[in-house]
Nucleic acid binder design. Structure first.
Ligand code: FES
Ligand code: FES
Lengths: 144, 144
DNA sequence: CCAATAAAAGACTTAAAACTCTTTTATTTA
DNA sequence: TAAATAAAAGAGTTTTAAGTCTTTTATTGG
């Protein structure tokens, strides 16, 4: 469904949303441990998301990653679009150059339906809404 | 959603189902043209599917690819499983080592829902059911 | 201002996916 | 049975994704 990069990105963003709820900054090492990902790899990914404005960071002692505007409250769909682009949300399921209702592939109708469902569910899934589940060990971001 | 290999595979299988409905065999060159894919690449893919029993082929003059048992009538889900495995149908959306209801990731419930929808729709989509649409130019397997 | 800290940047390696080319084997038909 | 045909097999190459390592830059607190 998502690229490995995107899977790490989503896990990391949810993790940061969880850990930095009160404005605390969270370091890359702790993030890498928390989501069980290669440290330098997730660093690159978050740098990229930082450039695109989806996350903030500060260098130096007590530095780390955090969300400046809780008000923005990005969704998982925003993260997916930033990393994997919009192929999943608007591309043809059978790989035709573009998805088109006028010249549809054989599964266009059914595929469009589930594709839209995926988009809607990821759009509705805000990064901040998972804090409680993680806090109470009802949901997990790693298998350690 | 699917790997490039899998996209080609599905297109090719639907194309063969369409073209060899009356027992005609269809050559790899015509398949490659019909679905707009690299010839040697789709050849490899169909060889693989042949070994797995999803398609039949014969060498020599008048040889080509065809379906022996119309009765089997595989679905797109079968092709996807053969090529991409079952990660899409049963893996964790956030890339955790395994999807588990007991130790779910934050989006497990919602993800499982759309994942099952995808499976059901691909399971219901039989390779032979698209012939009419293709025949009447209502649906397409390329953009040429 | 200096040392410590932590992210940013950039160069790099590895592994997997995508794709190509050449040779071999099976089948048919003249 | 020889020539033509078409897939099978196998050994590549190229490209992209995934992951690593080293150096630089920014920030803080003493
Ligand atoms: S054309 Fe294939 S999904 Fe729309
Ligand atoms: S645990 Fe992530 S989808 Fe089930």
């Amino acid at each position: 469904m998502f690229s490995k990069t995107c899977e790490y990105a989503i896990r990391a963003m949810i993790f940061v949303a969880h850990k930095s709820k009160d404005g605390t900054k969270i370091g890359i090492k702790e993030i890498a441990k928390g989501i069980d990902s290669p440290e330098h790899f997730i660093a690159k990914i978050l740098q990229d998301l930082g450039k695109k404005g989806l996350i903030q960071s500060l260098k130096g002692p007590n530095g780390g990653f955090f969300f400046e505007n809780e008000t923005l409250n990005y969704s998982i769909a925003d993260v997916v679009t930033a990393i994997d682009g919009n192929k999943l949300f608007s591309g043809c399921g059978l790989g035709l150059k573009e998805c088109s209702t006028a010249k549809p592939c054989p599964i266009h109708n059914e595929f469009k339906k589930v594709r839209d469902d995926i988009f809607n569910m990821l759009q509705a899934a805000k990064l901040t809404q998972f804090t409680d589940g993680l806090e109470n060990n009802l949901t997990f971001l790693n298998r350690k």
